[in-house]
Amino acid sequence: MELMPLIYFKLVAKLENMSRAAEQLHITQPALSKSISQLEASLGVPLFDRNGRSIRLNRYGKFFLERTELILREYDRAREDLTNLIAPGQGEVSIGFMHTLGLQVIPALLTDVRNVYPQMKFQLTQSNSGVLLHKLEAGDLDLCLISSVELGHHVHWEKLWDEELFLIVPYEHPLVGEQSVKLEQFAAEPFISIKKGNSLRKSVDELYRQEGFVLNVAFEGEEIHTVAGLVESGLGVSLIPHIKGLEQYRLHVIPVAAENCKREIGIAYMENRFISAVTEQFSTYVKQYFKEN
């Protein structure tokens, strides 16, 4: 049912005068009478007792008026809540981000944002790029911080920064002590990888392919700390971004002398979907933040 007939009914019930109600609603009396008649027909019961031009709310009308006032109050409350939800500076933004960004990047970003927009609220979702893209396309997220690998249809992605990938090896590895290494120096070694479907795995696969090598996967892990633990145990080497907490492992971190040993991180949102004012405001802030940091 549309709300306008309920609004018309509420005023007619209050005034019990069709002419005065039509005048206040700025519509013609015949149009108002038709709306009330259609409402009664849809409900299957008359709401007013009619005697010539005089109308009076009957017992069915009084019952329905109570419910109508509840419906309209809930509508007004929902509209107010939605306004607050999307209001610039104080609304809510639903953000998705990759696991590796949750250790340092996202906490630093949100701390910085709160200094400028203390009333802004956030819903946070942490997962791999594939899951985040699915949630973005489904409308569960307003925007994502993800890599550029295999973007979906109608997804707009804008680069924010390059994330360098480093070789990690156990302390006893022959490459310990090197200031930098080439991919050919470790390409044939057992590799501890993130599972397929993760943007980091896709970036590493592409790097090996471009350099003319095939990834020799020994073990696959769900997240980077698992990878670091397996490398520490001497089960292989890996390429990962330099994340917070890596120093707790007995590892050596070595830069790789390859220009493409990195992945691009950017902000993504749907091109064909409504973007609230607060989401637009946050998106603009994020872009400026990563220009300056």
Rank of each mutant, 00 (worst) to 15 (best):
I265M: 13
K182L: 10
A268D: 08
T83D: 10
A21H: 05
R114M: 01
H225D: 14
L57N: 08
N115W: 13
F274V: 13
L101M: 11
L143D: 08
S276M: 00
G245Y: 02
N58G: 06
L175R: 06
V181S: 08
F63Y: 11
L39M: 08
N293E: 14
L15P: 00
V176Q: 06
L145A: 08
E206N: 13
R56T: 09
E271Q: 15
V278D: 09
L110A: 07
W161C: 10
E158K: 12
I267L: 12
A22Y: 07
E178L: 13
I265T: 13
H225C: 09
W161R: 11
I146W: 04
R250H: 12
P30Y: 06
L239S: 00
N51Q: 07
Y171L: 12
S193Y: 01
F63K: 14
L145W: 06
D205V: 06
N84W: 11
L124T: 06
I240E: 12
E16Q: 14
V256E: 04
V105I: 13
R53I: 00
L133G: 13
S238P: 05
K262V: 00
R79G: 04
L246D: 03
D142L: 06
L25S: 08
E189T: 01
E271Y: 07
V93H: 09
S238C: 01
Y285F: 13
